[in-house]
Computed example of a mutant assay.
Amino acid sequence: MNKNILGLNKQTSADSVEKLNGLLANFQIYYQNLRGLHWNIKGKNFFELHVKFEELYTDSQVKIDEIAERILTLQGKPLHTFADYIENSSVPVGKNISNDVEAVELVVSSLSELLEIERVILDLSDTSDDEGTNSMVSDLISEQEKTIWMLNSWLGK
């Protein structure tokens, strides 16, 4: 039998798990960047951005859990070590960023990278009738596109 317990093709589900683990790794780097930005932001926009970065990292924690649980639902094993996250991520790492513009630009570039990964997963889940993954990733994309628009507006772009 080529189908898993969910009625999805086993190989396609394995491919989805691999892609979702990549997304999970990238979200973990994004999350850690947001923590660092929250802690280290300085300047006239401190209060506004300190709160915004906390809002974003709190939201990311929820998303990370949803992604890991989707991997488990597809009968995969979520990555869970920092070594795995670093090895499987392409989101830029932000270190010692305290400047407001540089911080917001890092968030925008990180979200843009996540969107690229998510669109690949969306295509895969669409062609494999994996509505659970498709729905989750579609929601991520919609939210992140709006966040990019808002942050770009803050940047004056």
Rank of each mutant, 00 (worst) to 15 (best):
R119N: 15
G36W: 08
L122A: 07
D59L: 11
S60L: 04
G36Q: 12
K146E: 15
H50S: 04
T81P: 05
K3V: 11
A25K: 08
D123V: 07
I67F: 08
V62S: 12
Y57P: 03
I148W: 04
L24Q: 04
S135R: 08
Q144H: 15
K77Y: 10
G94F: 06
I117Q: 14
R70V: 08
R35I: 15
V104D: 07
N88H: 15
E54N: 11
Q144F: 09
W39P: 02
P92G: 02
L23T: 03
R119G: 00
I121L: 14
L111N: 08
N21E: 07
I121K: 05
K146T: 14
S109I: 12
Y30S: 05
K19N: 06
D123R: 12
D130R: 07
G132E: 11
L6T: 03
F27H: 12
K146C: 00
E69C: 09
F53P: 03
T58V: 10
G7K: 07
N4M: 07
T147H: 01
W154D: 06
M1D: 07
N40K: 13
K77G: 00
D129F: 13
M1Y: 06
V91A: 10
L114V: 10
S98I: 02
F47K: 08
F53K: 04
N2P: 12
I86F: 11
Q61W: 06
N26Y: 06
T12V: 00
H80T: 04
L34S: 01
E48S: 10
N33E: 05
L56D: 11
G94S: 14
D139R: 09
N99F: 00
T81I: 04
E48G: 00
V107D: 08
G156S: 04
N45D: 15
A103I: 05
K157V: 10
K95Y: 12
F47S: 09
V101G: 00
E143A: 15
I86T: 13
D126R: 12
D59N: 12
D59Q: 15
S153V: 07
L49E: 08
H38Y: 15
G22P: 00
E113R: 13
I141R: 06
H50T: 08
S153Q: 10
I71V: 15
I141G: 03
